[in-house]
Amino acid sequence: MSHRHCFALDLKKNTELINEYEAYHQAVWPEIIASIKEAGIEDLQIYRVENRLFMIMEVHDSFSFEKKHAADAANPKVQQWEELMWNYQQALPTAKPGEKWMPMKKIFQL
């Protein structure tokens, strides 16, 4: 069985930076794809409107945010990717220090 999680994050309001960010996501590094799959993430999609990002994650029952964070912290390539992406991203106004992708609350389902 899988579970869905949704998150939001902003990009810096700069067309050139937004285009670069999208280009990186057309050719995500293979090590990043591997880390996503190894964590039990079965599907991951990112959508954009203006500078707002919306991420949908479908995860396997075995997925754990704590294990994913620990694995990411121990993976130099993931850390390099995250540092690079932070050049384009900016936290939502209500984010805590160091918080990037913020979980979204589901408010409706048909």
Rank of each mutant, 00 (worst) to 15 (best):
H60W: 03
N51C: 06
A71K: 15
K77W: 00
I36H: 04
S64I: 13
E58V: 14
I33Q: 08
A70Q: 12
V59A: 13
D10I: 00
L53T: 01
A8R: 05
W29P: 00
I56N: 10
K77M: 12
A27G: 05
D61P: 07
G98M: 10
E50R: 14
E99W: 08
P76K: 00
V78N: 06
E82H: 01
E99Q: 15
L92W: 09
I32N: 06
A8L: 04
Y24I: 03
Q109I: 03
M104H: 03
E50N: 13
P76V: 02
H60F: 02
E20R: 09
S62K: 09
P97S: 10
K67W: 02
K13S: 14
F108T: 06
V78L: 06
H5P: 07
K37F: 10
K77I: 15
W81V: 01
E99Y: 02
L53Q: 05
F54E: 02
E83P: 04
P93V: 10
S35K: 11
Q109S: 11
A91M: 07
P103K: 00
A91Q: 02
V59S: 09
H69P: 07
E82L: 13
L9Y: 09
M85V: 05
V78Q: 04
Y47Q: 04
R48Q: 03
I36A: 01
N51E: 09
Q89V: 10
E16Q: 01
Y24R: 06
I33R: 10
L92Y: 06
A27L: 06
V78F: 09
H60Q: 15
Q79C: 13
L92N: 07
K105R: 10
V28S: 00
G40N: 05
N87L: 10
K12R: 15
K105W: 13
V59Q: 07
W86R: 14
S2Y: 11
N19A: 15
Q109G: 03
E82C: 01
H5R: 12
G98F: 03
L44T: 04
P93L: 10
D10S: 12
W29L: 05
